Amino acid sequence: MIVVSLGGDAHRAVLLGRARVGTPEDAAAWLRGEALRLAVRLDPGPRTRWAAPGLVHPVRGPGPDAPTAMRAWAECPEQVRGVRALLAQGHPYTRRFQDPGGSWYELTAAPAENAGDPMNQPSPDVPRCEATGQVTQIVAELAMDVTRTAGAQPRSRIRCALAPHLTYEHQGIVRELSGGGGHVWGTFGAAVPVWRVRVAPPCPHWAGAAPCGLYDDHPGACVPARTSEPA
């Protein structure tokens, strides 16, 4: 089974978590744990260990409250049993929690054959992060020196090769390598030039709906490479 958590608004959706689990019981447990994880990060409770006593206290505002709804859903045994039963019958399950301003958080579980698994299906229409970064002279020299593989000259400016993501780090291709050698990838931030480079293969063609596993600390989902535009 595939289990997924998403967050978004009227303009875009962002992958927050994704896993493959074995049984409906595992899927329901993952969704419950993910709901509590997101709720705590969005709205820490008064007993949060990192906060001094009295620093965090309940405040009730108008409109929907996604963290409270996620806590209530996760702590309701009947809800969790219902999810397990639905999944055991081979049906998918989706639950969306609305927040003020049109933002939302969504939990989904489905049998792998019905989940639109991005591990097996290309996603050619994934939106792309619009961030761009500058490649300084010292970084360009580093991109030349970091590998002995022949390739193109470093670019002076790169575009993020990820789908829209929540982290402050962006990834782009500083230098194309020859003969299947991959790319020299660069890490940059908002108004911050490329500060790190590494050699890695191109993102897999199926990427776009989940972190592609290019390397361990990859910050987001890749967009499939298109030869008609620079990465």
Score class of each variant (00 low, 15 high):
33 G>A: 03
5 S>T: 12
214 L>V: 05
52 A>M: 11
179 G>I: 10
195 W>K: 12
204 P>G: 08
162 L>S: 03
114 N>W: 06
76 C>S: 15
154 P>G: 09
70 M>D: 03
69 A>I: 00
73 W>P: 04
201 P>N: 13
95 R>T: 08
144 M>V: 10
72 A>Y: 04
152 A>G: 13
163 A>C: 00
228 S>N: 15
28 A>P: 00
107 L>A: 05
152 A>N: 12
149 T>A: 12
128 R>M: 09
181 G>R: 06
200 A>R: 07
7 G>S: 13
98 Q>A: 15
12 R>W: 00
41 R>I: 10
221 A>G: 08
132 T>D: 14
41 R>W: 14
158 I>Q: 01
187 T>E: 00
121 Q>M: 11
183 H>M: 06
113 E>L: 14
37 R>F: 05
161 A>G: 09
64 P>R: 03
43 D>Q: 09
66 A>I: 04
11 H>A: 11
48 T>C: 09
215 Y>I: 07
27 A>K: 04
55 L>Q: 14
49 R>H: 10
51 A>T: 08
32 R>G: 12
34 E>F: 09
167 T>W: 01
158 I>T: 06
5 S>N: 09
157 R>H: 13
83 V>P: 03
14 V>P: 01
79 Q>C: 08
198 R>L: 14
156 S>A: 14
205 H>Y: 12
142 L>F: 02
201 P>G: 15
28 A>T: 00
35 A>I: 04
133 G>M: 05
65 D>V: 10
139 V>H: 04
218 H>A: 07
199 V>P: 05
127 P>Y: 01
102 G>H: 09
211 P>D: 03
113 E>K: 15
32 R>T: 08
108 T>S: 12
9 D>R: 07
195 W>Y: 15
106 E>I: 01
222 C>Y: 01
214 L>E: 01
93 Y>Q: 11
31 L>Y: 02
149 T>C: 11
182 G>K: 07
229 E>G: 10
70 M>K: 03
124 P>G: 06
27 A>M: 08
166 L>W: 08
216 D>Y: 10
181 G>E: 00
69 A>E: 02
117 D>L: 12
123 S>I: 07
118 P>L: 09
115 A>C: 11
134 Q>H: 12
8 G>V: 00
142 L>S: 15
78 E>Y: 08
79 Q>R: 14
84 R>G: 01
33 G>P: 09
219 P>V: 03
193 P>I: 10
91 H>L: 08
139 V>P: 01
67 P>I: 04
179 G>Y: 06
227 T>R: 11
67 P>E: 07
213 G>D: 08
93 Y>G: 04
67 P>M: 07
70 M>S: 05
206 W>T: 13
121 Q>Y: 07
18 R>N: 06
160 C>P: 04
99 D>L: 05
30 W>S: 04
19 A>W: 05
77 P>I: 13
18 R>E: 02
120 N>S: 09
207 A>T: 15
223 V>W: 02
43 D>V: 05
222 C>D: 02
170 H>N: 05
66 A>G: 07
101 G>Y: 08
164 P>R: 01
15 L>T: 10
46 P>F: 03
76 C>L: 15
7 G>I: 01
121 Q>E: 10
74 A>G: 07
